[in-house]
């Protein structure tokens, strides 16, 4: 499948944290021919193992991309059949008014709804100045009476934002849930590459659940794997109009995280290898990485970690924007890093 076609499928499949089954199915369909074994963990992460092809399996590397997305669950059904929502992950109430949503009922059926807004004509002076909050947001379920809503939708049912399909302009892509489906795509592309090459370590490609609410999916998958090296691939905030702070630029390469939790050894190797193969690399410092890596780091006796990110604009909206060049460069970099693992670790022990 073409990258864009697959990405479209990945981003249009609902997978709000804790309800990742459907997106996991899409991923499994794609990877089952690309790995030696795969399974779903008790918390819903998918672990695919591509064994060392050189037969020298000296170590284990885990590369994790989260497959969940931010969204909502129904918190309450109000008079008239309107739904109140509870957020799953960091949703900004300011982007919600006039969004279309999909309600995934516990019965398995899906319903469409809109997040309503009070007409400007009806707003008081005070209301015009007020910021929207999650306490003011409500969903109008389309075409269902109150009785039908109560019969088919219950508290706890998942709600996702329904965004137009991906659009591609030059190398740029706009869509919803590119955080972190873009790295899900990168992980699948990586598996494809691993099938064409000789490498020494066992590679565990993880599609983790529930990153947006604190990464229990990556934590438990990492406990199972006990990797020697852990890399989280995720998105980071890219340069954006009006922000003076120096942010990573779209199209200028993947971003390497540097901070107290990031292993200097892994970061150093990645920097060196990027230079060798002419992959542009941007650097970003942070105390906590804000990714699955924070959880992977503290598993068992501890795991040395790194974070590689794709710069992304308009994070946690339905118009997340990335540059496909960065994704291709990320995959190239991971491929080369994996190829050289035996060498870099042998040198480290000398």
């Amino acid at each position: 499948m073409e990258d864009i076609e697959l990405l479209d499928k990945l981003t249009s499949t609902p997978g709000v944290s804790g309800s990742e089954e459907k997106v996991a199915d899409v991923i499994i369909e794609e990877i089952k021919g690309l790995c030696d074994e795969y399974h779903t963990t008790p918390l819903g992460s998918v672990i695919a193992l591509k064994k060392s092809t050189s037969g020298r399996a000296k170590g284990k590397i885990e590369i994790s991309a989260h497959m969940d997305e931010i969204g909502f669950v129904v918190a309450k059904i109000e008079e008239g059949g309107y739904l109140r929502l509870a957020t799953v992950g960091g949703v900004d109430p300011k982007i919600l008014s006039s969004q279309e949503v999909t309600i995934i009922s516990h019965t398995g059926r899906e319903y469409k709804g809109v997040i309503g807004a009070l007409a400007p004509h009806l707003q008081t002076e005070k209301e015009r100045k007020e910021q929207p909050s999650h306490d003011t947001v409500f969903v109008d379920v389309i075409g269902l009476s109150e009785d039908e809503v109560r019969a088919n939708i219950r508290v706890g049912d998942t709600v996702t934002m329904h965004a137009p399909i991906l659009r591609l302009m030059k190398n740029r892509i706009v869509g919803k849930s590119l955080d972190d489906r873009i790295c899900v795509l990168a992980n699948i592309k990586l598996l494809r590459e691993l099938n064409k090459m000789i490498f020494d370590w066992d590679v565990y490609v993880v599609f983790s659940s529930q990153e947006e609410i604190g990464s229990p999916g990556a934590r438990t998958a990492t406990y199972e794997i006990e990797p020697d090296v852990g890399i989280a691939i995720d998105v980071t905030i890219g340069d954006i109009h009006g922000v003076k702070e120096k942010l990573p630029k779209l199209g200028k390469g993947p971003v390497l995280g540097l901070g107290p939790t990031c292993s200097p050894k892994i970061a150093g190797d990645i920097k060196k290898i990027a230079k060798e193969i002419n992959v542009p690399l941007q650097l970003e410092a942070s105390v906590r990485t804000g990714t699955d890596a924070d959880s992977m780091f503290l598993v068992g006796k501890g795991v040395p970690i790194a974070v590689l990110s794709i710069p992304l604009r308009h994070m946690h909206t339905t118009v997340e924007l990335i540059d496909m060049d960065d994704v291709n460069n990320l995959v190239r970099l991971l491929v080369e890093y994996i190829k050289q693992l035996d060498k870099t670790y042998e040198e480290a022990f000398l």
């Binding site: 963990t41 008790p42 918390l43 438990t220 998958a221 406990y223």
Partner: peptide
């Protein structure tokens, strides 16, 4: 309890 070890439903 949920995130103990390999994860517990």
């Amino acid at each position: 309890i949920q995130k103990t070890k390999k994860g517990i439903p």
